[in-house]
Structures are given as structure tokens and as C-alpha cells.
Design a binder for these strands. Structure first.
Length: 295
DNA sequence: AATGCAGACAACCGCCCCGCC
DNA sequence: CGGCGGGGCGGTTGTCTGCAT
């Protein structure tokens, strides 16, 4: 019956001590992360391998930023959550200095309540700080806008995704988290990392601060040159093709990196949607009708 | 000053995926 | 092809801390 527990009985639980942190950190520094099974035996730590891995990835790993989520990060998390759902690891891959656990906690303790407050209060649209896209509209207007936004986003992505397989996908096999023309729209919409990366590409360009801080993997105080990928377990945003991964290392001299290489309709429409998405994110004053006309 | 409560965060648990044999 | 083990992920729980009473 059941699975064998991953950890022996008798392993230590609870908060890590400084000594334990030191032992783990120096071990990983010497041997590199990985082979966590061997860590407890080799270090003498009375912790299970999972606990060691978790402690390293969420706390000890160099280059991670803790607490003090910025407005831009908040917005990014909110929108990524809307796009990806509770796929915290995927979301974290777009915030190189944040861990999935951190983002998950922040979502559960701050953002969820914040959004609930916004939805539940009439003045939410005007008093929600960084979450507000509609600072000066009534609740009714706000709700209509949100619904229209969702409709348009779904429509744009439906068209972009279903008409033709984009050429940049090449001959890649479909993955479980990738393209699915038969999946419900919500699944397709949320799971296309290529399109999400496109959206974020535009988002980053529009927002230099976000681009510099989050995409380049650090603020000006960060001296870790490889913080982009290394600080995030060395992975680029989940599931991105090489071209799309460029958002991790933006090159300032290239003002308009062209990620839309194909010539089919889906590729041609994607920038339009990005433009809309950027508008949706940043242009609070843009009338909805004008937004709709973009499509 | 003591107690209760809520919020924030660290850590654990169980499931799942994937690579290896 | 199937079993096994390692590692990753998301949900949940436990603990600590600050604030109100």
C-alpha cells in the first residue's frame, strides 16, 4: 500500500538553523546543485533530500530577491496568473529573482485578497494601487471593460493559435503543455508559452523599468552577471523556443527584436494582439471602443 | 503586561513527470 | 514495456511576529 516515504523517519524537520544553512550552502558551492539524494549522507545533515533542495532553491540559492515586490512585479504576476493559472514555477521563470514559493505565497497572502477586495468593493477600480488598470471608471464600466478584455484576448488568441501552426514552432513535437488545437480555449490560451512570451516581450519593451529589473535579472545593485538564468536554476522561461527566450537577455541596441518570423496569418496577427495587450496593461485612458477597433 | 488574533512566510506533503535500467 | 527512483511542482500546514484588546 502506498508509496514509500521519500525520507527516512527521524529526519529533522522545522526551521533551518544557520549552521545547517552553512553546511548545505558550502556543499552545494563545492559540488553544485543536484543529486540531492546524496546531500544528507555526504553532509551529515539530518534533513531529507527534498528539504535540502527546497532550502537551496527557495532560500540559499544566490541571486534571489526576497520580499518587497514592486508594482511592476505585482502586475506581472497578476497577468501571468491570469494567463497561466497557478503554475507558479512557470510564472517564476519570468521573474528571475523570485522563487515559485515566494510568488505563490505572495499571491495567496497579498494579491488574492487584493483582487478580491477590488472585485468586492465599488471603489476597487480607483483604490487598488498597482493593480488598477482603470483608475477612473465606475464599477460597471470596469466590469464591462474586463469582460470585453477577456473576450478580445480570447478571440485574438483563438485566431492566432488555431488558423495555422506558426512557423517558429518548426517540427517540434507537441508537448503536454504546448500547442493543442483541440483543447478548450482556456487551455490553449493559457498554455502557449510562445504567445505568453510574445505578450511579455511587448510588455517589457513598453516598461523599461520592468525590462531592466526583471528581464535582465536584477536591479542596478545586482552584480551577478549571470543572474538571468543562473538565478533561476539556469532555465529560461518555461517552454520557450530559442527565439522567444530572447526576452531574457534583451539587447538595448536592437530596438525592435523581431520575434514574429513567420508569414502566416497567425504570426502577422500576434503583434496586433501584443499591441492590444500593452494597451490593456498601460493605457488606462484608452476608450474600450478604440481598443476594439484595433482588432 | 497578558492574551488572542490575523497576516506573513517557511517548510512539508503528496502527486506527478521523466529518465534510466 | 514496465518498474523504480530522483526531482519538480502545487497545495497545505505550521510557526513566527506584530498588532489590537
Amino acid at each position: 500500500m502506498g508509496r514509500t516515504p521519500c525520507c527516512d523517519k527521524g529526519v529533522k524537520k522545522g526551521p533551518w538553523t544557520q549552521e545547517e544553512d552553512l553546511v548545505l550552502a558550502s556543499y552545494v558551492k563545492e559540488h553544485g546543485p543536484g543529486n540531492w539524494r546524496a546531500v544528507p549522507t555526504n553532509t551529515g545533515l539530518m534533513r531529507c533530500s527534498k528539504s535540502c533542495r527546497l532550502r537551496w532553491t527557495n532560500y540559499l540559492r544566490p541571486g534571489i530577491k526576497r520580499g518587497n515586490f514592486t508594482d511592476q512585479e505585482e502586475r506581472l504576476i497578476v497577468h501571468l496568473q491570469a494567463l497561466l493559472g497557478n503554475r507558479w514555477a512557470a510564472i517564476a521563470s519570468y521573474l528571475p529573482e523570485r522563487t515559485d514559493n515566494d510568488i505563490k505565497n505572495y499571491w495567496n497572502t497579498h494579491l488574492k485578497k487584493k483582487l478580491r477586495r477590488i472585485q468586492g468593493s465599488g471603489d476597487g477600480a480607483t483604490s487598488n494601487g498597482g493593480l488598477s488598470r482603470y483608475p477612473s471608471v465606475s464599477k460597471d464600466q470596469w466590469e464591462r471593460r474586463v469582460q470585453a478584455d477577456i473576450r478580445m484576448a480570447k478571440q485574438a488568441l483563438t485566431e492566432a493559435l488555431s488558423l495555422q501552426k506558426p512557423s517558429y514552432l518548426g517540427d517540434r513535437k507537441p508537448q503536454s503543455s504546448g500547442f493543442s488545437l483541440t483543447a478548450p480555449i482556456t487551455t490553449t490560451y493559457a498554455s502557449s508559452t510562445e504567445n505568453i512570451s510574445r505578450l511579455l516581450q511587448g510588455w517589457m519593451k513598453r516598461s523599461p523599468a520592468a525590462g531592466a529589473d526583471m528581464v535582465a535579472g536584477g536591479d542596478s545593485t545586482s552584480t551577478k552577471g549571470s543572474a538571468t538564468a543562473a538565478s533561476n536554476n539556469g532555465v529560461s522561461p518555461v517552454g520557450l523556443p530559442d527565439s522567444a527566450s530572447k526576452i531574457e537577455t534583451p539587447t538595448p541596441e536592437v530596438s525592435e527584436p523581431n520575434l514574429f518570423l513567420g508569414e502566416n496569418k497567425a504570426d502577422m496577427e500576434a503583434p496586433v494582439f501584443i499591441s492590444l495587450f500593452e494597451t490593456w496593461l498601460f493605457d488606462d485612458s484608452m476608450p474600450l471602443d478604440d481598443t476594439a477597433e484595433l482588432l
